[in-house]
Amino acid sequence: MSDFTELTTDPIDITSVARRVVPSECGATVTLDGYARRFTKDKQTGETRETDYLVYEAYEPMAVREMQKLVEQAKAEFEISNVGIVHRLGKLEIGETSVVISVSAPHRRAAFTACEWLIKELKRTVPIWKKEVYADGEVWVEGESALKP
């Protein structure tokens, strides 16, 4: 049983990701299923936009390295056993899974905390970009949080 960080253009099987992180000392796995949202409220204008589909792209070798760093940091900081992260790339229809993060731990609390920390850091540091495509245009989403190297 080991950690893993992967990029794929195929649909992600959430259950298999969740099961791959389970060693015998664990009592709980927390799995985040992030998926493509149809309606997005613009935080500045308050207007709601309807998305047709999403396109993700990555600086692939660096994205895998950054995900591996997050796994190492999470394992150093939280009482968890294994972490699996799989991020989808390419075109995603609404409702399809874009990212799965599974964290196994002897006890659930550490797994919840680590999973929340991992998705927050992934969205801040891992070089992956999302394009939202609407009926009348498209935009590459630029992340909110400034990176402090």
């Binding site: 874009s98 992934l122 540091t125 992340g143």
Partner: peptide, 8 residues
């Protein structure tokens, strides 16, 4: 060179 990341 790239803009602030937006994965997840």
């Amino acid at each position: 060179l790239f803009t602030a990341v937006s994965g997840g």
